[in-house]
Nucleic acid binder design. Structure first.
Lengths: 228, 228
DNA sequence: CCCTAAAATGAACTTTGTGTTGATTAATGA
DNA sequence: TCATTAATCAACACAAAGTTCATTTTAGGG
């Protein structure tokens, strides 16, 4: 009773260790705590690995925690469910993209397109994709989340395409409606990102960015170098 | 015992009413039986409606059958699980696409592109998308299945793009690698389909097909009619 | 080094959906 | 009319979800 220095903290044990399936982001965790950092990292990595293999749909919380080597209860200490986890990862990545987007200047583009050099902003984006290749590769791939592709497109729309709104004529003078042209270009660029990741990044960000410059200036037929 | 004409079929009751979670497509049903036709139809419609609302991931077999007004057991009479159901619907739609693809002739394209008229093959495709708008709209949208987008791209690759392989120069003479150009174009076209469905089909198949013709011939900058 | 706050663990429990089974009822079509 | 077969119903074992609480482990400031 005295040798073991007793349990004098019995009446002061931990409160509210739990998140609750509803209160999704009401958590104010100490993000500096190395235990939390580690846990988060393990869970994120485990989720991406499992998604790569089976797709988000087929994964259970049990799978995630056992791959992460953590207790299932620990998961619920931080996230309401697997959707919550995915959202948090996604939001972080989008933050990263938005930060890069701040450096974007449309006038820069005009300068570079006339001299067959890649647009530096595009290079920076691809460097980011490369840095987080696993995430983007999974999320934009066949096992990924189609809602993320939409998010990504919205990002391009707002941060890139909308900057050029002022430069085009009124709709009746255009060969193709403005909004359809935007849909075309955004999806085309997304397609390049997907293909590049799929191929294991066989070109440098610089090379890819140069392709963008060229494909924007040439018609598809010219880009193909088709024999007539 | 005699008034009710008895149960003389007791020893001949139905065998193997069930599919089994593994034997996915081992079923040889009489697809003409109106009961089956009706059941299939109800299940398909229910699935699409629910996907539109909550996405495939959030749906349970219970949801599907209760929306379809059927017994849950009936579902398992025809499908192993919800994935199986989705696959069957998808396969049917792809069949429809392949059938249209048979009518494709690349030489046709050369004829039409020089006179600013839509490519009839493209018109036919969009008529099909329109006819099955709910399916394509859901599956290619944010609540859909990213694997289907990939399937769809492969379809375009095989049935459209590969036909032009012979017409291009060797890679070192091209402004952009051939495979990247294909990824760009395929994704761009997919994007138009998605956008068109999203907008509630605000143009006719003919109009959309004409946009394709033009965007293939003009550079994005020309398509935009950008002020210099 | 010790001690406290907080994170992680482990075990139990309820609930919900799954996939299966066998018996019964209802519809089809020859 | 009647044999066949689809659909229904009720019951089952099972797996994972989400929650709770007591206990153990860890981090880091005094």
């Amino acid at each position: 009773m005295s040798t073991k220095q007793s349990k004098n903290n019995l009446y002061l044990t931990t409160f509210t260790q739990h998140i609750g399936a509803k209160g999704l982001t009401e958590v104010t965790e100490n993000a500096n705590d190395p235990r939390i950092v580690r846990t988060m990292h393990m869970l994120r990595e485990a989720l991406l690995e499992l998604m790569e293999e089976h797709g988000f749909e087929r994964i259970t919380v049990k799978d995630i925690t056992s791959k992460a080597g953590l207790n299932r209860g620990t998961f619920y200490l931080h996230f309401a469910d697997k959707f919550d986890l995915l959202e948090r990862i996604t939001e972080d990545m989008m933050q990263g993209l938005r930060k890069i987007a701040q450096t974007f200047d449309p006038l820069d583009l005009v300068m570079h397109e006339s001299r067959d050099t890649p647009f530096p902003f595009t290079v920076r984006l691809f460097e980011y994709f490369g840095k987080h290749a696993r995430f983007f590769s999974v999320m934009l791939g066949p096992k990924g989340d189609p809602a993320f592709s939409v998010k990504f497109k919205e990002f391009m729309q707002v941060h890139l395409m909308d900057k050029f709104n002022e430069f085009h004529y009124s709709d009746d003078r255009m060969p193709v409606p403005w909004d359809y042209l935007m849909a075309y270009l955004i999806s085309a660029h997304l397609g390049i990102v997907q293909y590049w990741l799929e191929q294991g990044r066989d070109y440098t960000p610089w090379d890819i960015a140069l392709m963008f410059t060229r494909m924007t200036q040439l018609s598809p037929i010219q880009s193909a170098g088709l024999k007539k």
